[in-house]
Write a protein that binds this DNA or RNA. Structure first.
Lengths: 204, 204
DNA sequence: CAAGTTTTTTACCATTTGGTAAAGTTACGA
DNA sequence: TCGTAACTTTACCAAATGGTAAAAAACTTG
């Protein structure tokens, strides 16, 4: 076991990453309770007690995943520049969110599972990390509205609607692929629709 | 055990309903694997083997719930009248969806859980029941667009966005209540925002 | 390369969990 | 009201699952 003061060895860093990567896919598609340590072990080519050597418990893996991924998951929101062109900043954010839905559906579903089930392991993190960022960005949006750069509306609900629409494509993909088969141009169609939609909504 | 030909007794009807009601809340907040038969039994004041007397397995309860609720869950979509005023028909549908998010969050989360995890027990049902309805309503929307009654856009993605935004308020309530505390006027604010949003999007 | 440390593997355990068997109780039609 | 079918309860079980103990193997470092 590693003492708390020592920094992790190369092997530790690598293997923890392997574990997280395997666990991410499984937690995303089966949820926390639906995923077993044996499944994670098999998915990353390790043995069950080896997981516990690197993480104290199954829950510790889950929590570490949520914490590790939250930051980069939220980074596009943070990247909105208060001094840029309002409409283009927001549309840029929306484009990045659509891209992330396509590139990182596992992350999207991991958070979706967690929050749908009441965020039992993430509520404090939402309070401490997401809330301040959210409030700040709402402030930026409010200022843009007051300056007449974009249409006047409730900034919080605007952000909710952006999250809802963009993440829907990752979280509910199983349903979408049934209703809109032939996935060739689906991504482009989605991108075009979402851009058109929010352009209309935001234009004063 | 009841023979397949006999129709269920009063006690059977009542107790199955009690079981479904208890299971709905638990499946919605803990997912399928996260819910145990003992939890369901306790929640409806029955004993575990009694559940198995009414349902062959835990999975049978889950499947019956999905099947039973799917129809009424989709009924507002079916209620869109092709001969009514297009904008008002769609906005009426959106209002009903918002109302359902508020009145039936358990149902919304039950389906959210199921679909996020790849709809393992619902894919055939989506194909057989949802797909035809969806295609029909897309056709109605397309005609309204061709007639210039509402703005031109991809009908399927319009429906996706309606589902995404309205169900987001039920499915991600844990997050929303952190970001927008003081729930007094939250529902009204949401309703107003969503109506304004889609009015803009749909106006030609 | 030898001693010590880190990492991996094997064997195992206690609890939980979905489900069964069968006895006991209640409801209900003749 | 009596017999039978429907329903409920108690006791139980096998498999799955999260986790532990400790020996074996591999790696690091003086």
């Amino acid at each position: 076991m590693n003492s708390p003061a020592r920094k992790p060895s190369r092997i530790q860093t690598e293997n923890r990453q392997r574990i997280r990567d395997a666990a991410l896919g499984l937690f995303a598609t089966h949820g926390f309770r639906g995923t077993t340590l044996d499944q994670i072990a098999e998915a990353c080519g390790m043995h069950k007690p080896n997981l516990i050597y690197y993480y104290d418990s199954k829950e510790a893996i889950h929590i570490d995943l949520l914490n590790t991924l939250m930051e980069e998951w939220l980074s596009p929101l943070d990247a909105m520049n208060p001094d840029g062109d309002p409409l283009e900043e927001i549309l840029g954010y929306i484009r990045r969110k659509m891209e992330m839905s396509r590139l990182y559906p596992r992350e999207s579903r991991l958070f979706a599972n967690e929050i749908v089930q009441g965020a039992p392991r993430m509520l404090p993190h939402l309070e401490r990390t997401l809330k301040p960022l959210f409030d700040r960005q709402c402030g930026i949006l409010a200022k843009w509205m007051k300056d007449g750069k974009i249409a006047e509306m409730h900034p919080a609900h605007l952000i909710f609607s952006i999250w809802a629409v963009t993440q829907h494509y990752a979280d509910f993909e199983a349903q979408i692929s049934v209703l809109l088969p032939g996935d060739d141009k689906r991504a482009r169609g989605a991108d075009q629709f979402v851009e058109m939609m929010f352009r209309k909504v935001l234009t004063p």
